[in-house]
């Protein structure tokens, strides 16, 4: 099981290394281009499909922040909450 406490760190590392072959490739629900697209692919799509994002209810910035907070610890100081 992926340790989601370190997910932000892992995502940052992935993004900085190279444009990686995303898990999302070929999946329904393509992500639009944007500066943070690799971040979404590295952080979100490493655990679930893109269609959970593209087919979602959609949220404000605060709403996305709250939703992400139910999945992983957030920076600036990630702490381990996984068992």
């Amino acid at each position: 099981m992926r340790n989601r406490s370190a997910a932000w760190v892992a995502a940052a590392a992935l993004v900085s290394i190279a444009p990686f072959a995303a898990y999302a490739q070929g999946q329904p629900g393509a992500l639009p281009e944007g500066e943070a697209k690799p971040l979404v692919e590295g952080l979100c799509v490493s655990c679930h499909r893109t269609n959970l994002i593209t087919a979602s209810l959609g949220y404000t910035r605060d709403g996305w922040k709250e939703l992400i907070g139910t999945m992983i610890d957030r920076p600036p100081t990630p702490t381990c909450r996984t068992s």
Binding site: G34, A36, L39, L43, G58, R61, W64, I68
Partner: peptide, 20 residues
């Protein structure tokens, strides 16, 4: 990084009523 991520998501996937 968090701001960049949530900004991207909020801009591309704002609240919608597609499946209301």
């Amino acid at each position: 990084m968090q701001d960049k991520l949530t900004g991207y998501l909020a801009a591309n996937f704002p609240p919608n009523t597609r499946r209301a």
